[in-house]
């Protein structure tokens, strides 16, 4: 193997540092015994203690979890079906329908759902509108992961099942589903992570009635930055870290599909 030039390795390391230093700063300041994010004063867990006494924050966390749970379950089912349909029947319009919501700038989906919910469905913005919006953008991610898994599989397995007289439902339940299950679960974990993390689309579809963790963080950043933001950020980082490692362990194509 040819050795890489030293300058290239150093440039790559600098980019890795650029990726990690800002997050390290947030984590470090979450333990800093000072109201200012300026200099290191001393170690404290006060900001975490404050966080767990903050009623609004706890409610936002509960909403975030509820929305993520419901929307990722629905998106997993719909996304798996979409992935199967894209792989099996190759409708030319289906990839377009499934992937465009993922590829568009989020703000476009956000504003169009806002207008649609209010003007057409006459829905009061709240938990339901956020859940529906999250399902809409998650379907594509699950479908991509599931289709990638299907594309890597041996078609003769399904043919064999059919030749042995299995109905489509039996083929799905006994052959296809067990084979794609890691991708389905990885897609579901991914949808959950995307939902917990989403800010832009939630911002447009939540209205005034419901808050989520990212919305709560946004208003804290905009109004008054306190180190409590560092603490909630650190916890959120820990949660997504666990979720991503889990998804990566479950399915390797997740690494390529990435959020």
């Amino acid at each position: 193997m040819r050795r890489l030039p030293l300058s290239l390795v150093l440039a790559a390391l600098a980019t890795y540092a650029f990726l990690y230093v800002p997050l390290a700063v947030v984590v470090a300041y979450s333990f800093n015994d000072s109201r200012l994010n300026a200099e290191w004063v001393g170690f404290t867990l006060d900001w975490y203690r404050l966080l767990f006494q903050d009623e609004e924050m706890l409610l936002a966390a509960r909403n975030s979890l509820l929305i993520a749970l419901v929307s990722s379950l629905a998106a997993t089912v719909l996304g798996t079906l979409a992935g199967l349909a894209m792989h099996r029947w190759r409708f030319p319009w289906l990839p377009f329908l499934v992937i465009t919501p993922v590829a568009m700038p989020e703000i476009l989906l956000g504003v169009s759902l806002l207008v649609f919910f209010i003007q057409v469905l006459h829905l009061t913005l709240g938990l339901l509108s956020v859940v529906l919006a999250h399902i809409t953008f998650s379907i594509g991610f699950v479908a991509i992961v599931v289709r990638a898994r299907l594309a890597g599989m041996d078609e003769s397995l399904f043919e064999a099942a059919r030749d042995l007289g299995a109905t489509p439902w039996q083929t799905f339940r006994l052959v296809t589903l067990p084979l794609i299950l890691p991708a389905v679960v990885a897609g579901g974990v991914m949808a959950f992570t995307l939902s917990i993390d989403d800010f832009v689309i939630t911002f447009f579809t939540a209205g005034v009635g419901v808050s989520t963790l990212p919305l709560q963080i946004y208003s804290m950043i905009k109004i008054a930055v306190t180190p409590e933001v560092n603490a909630v950020s650190t916890l959120l980082m820990l949660l997504t870290l666990v979720m991503v490692l889990l998804a990566a362990r479950l399915d390797k194509s997740f690494m390529r599909g990435g959020t």
Partner: peptide
């Protein structure tokens, strides 16, 4: 790092 929250 990309998986940590966008706002963070």
């Amino acid at each position: 790092p990309f998986a940590s929250n966008f706002l963070v």
